[in-house]
Nucleic acid binder design. Structure first.
Length: 263
DNA sequence: GGAGATGTTTCAAG
DNA sequence: GCTTGAAACATCTC
């Protein structure tokens, strides 16, 4: 379920390997997840290198190794990071495994919508070029307003799924933001009143912050009363008014919302 | 067996 | 050149 908060959680899972050298690298070359990656270069650079630190930004992760080696991971739809015993036997979905003395760091992604990146030298461009994080002061109301204004004929749901402006927001968070803001996901951005645009901005920030504080820390559930708890069930009800949730494809994704309190 | 899945990328049309 | 929507990607689960 990798959206911003889950990504942050998975990043920390690999902290188990901090400050320890990699003794062996297992990588699947020639797969969709490793496209554009020189597998031999990864093996050569990371074997013997120490994991020095990591960061998460939106749905992306960056792992820094000694020798100026950088590993980027995106979890796609079904990616996961885990820690396994040092004698772990990777199967066909375990596309990258970093073996260390005490454990193995495993990146698994059956559906392969995720991505492995690799770079040697200074901080890679694909990391420094990312848009401002939602938690950053640069993610301003004006930025959101201008973005939505320029997409007058796009549904607001589709707009807040766009990573170039709402980095890290995925399908369930988008539904949560709109439900909390009481705005129908089908509304076109051009019809939003200034107060509604502000609500989108505010709720984006708060939903991200609270998800990071719960899911992001220990995979615990987000706060009580959120749409999150009912949106997965086909019989789900609105936590606010009790009406049955509506379901439709909006912005190309399954969307659930309350037809009564979201206008 | 079929449909759908918490995500991008690409392509074509407007 | 920009915006928008749909298809494609690969595999598993319900």
């Amino acid at each position: 379920m990798p959206e911003l908060a889950e990504v942050e959680y998975y990043r920390r899972v690999w902290d188990a390997g901090l400050r320890q050298p990699v003794t062996r690298v297992h990588i699947h070359a020639g797969k969709r997840v490793t496209r554009g990656v020189d597998a031999l270069a990864v093996v050569n650079a990371l074997t013997g290198a120490k994991l020095l630190g990591s960061e998460a930004h939106a749905k992306q992760m960056l792992f820094r190794f000694s020798g100026n080696a950088w590993l980027g991971l995106h979890l796609g739809m079904t990616g996961k990071l885990s820690v396994a015993p040092p004698d772990f036997q990777p199967d066909r979905h375990d596309h990258l495994v970093l073996f260390q003395k005490k454990q193995a760091l495993v990146f698994r992604d059956p559906r392969m919508f995720g991505r492995v990146r690799f770079h040697e030298g200074k901080t890679p461009e694909w990391w420094t070029d990312l848009p401002p994080a939602i938690a950053a002061p640069e993610f301003t109301a004006a930025l959101v307003r201008d973005f939505l204004n320029r997409r007058a004929k796009l549904t607001v749901k589709a707009a807040i799924l766009m990573q170039e402006r709402f980095p890290g927001v995925g399908n369930w968070m988008a539904d949560e933001i709109l439900w909390q803001a009481r705005i129908s996901p089908k509304r076109l951005c051009g019809t939003l009143k200034p107060a509604e645009v502000t609500a989108v901005w505010k709720r984006t920030k708060s939903v991200c912050a609270e998800a990071l504080a719960t899911v992001g820390v220990d995979f615990s559930d987000p706060p009580k009363g959120w749409l999150f708890h009912t949106r997965w069930s086909s019989k789900g009800k609105c936590p606010r008014c009790g009406a049955s949730l509506k379901t439709a494809q909006v912005g190309g994704r399954t969307t659930r919302w309350c037809g009564k309190c979201q206008r």
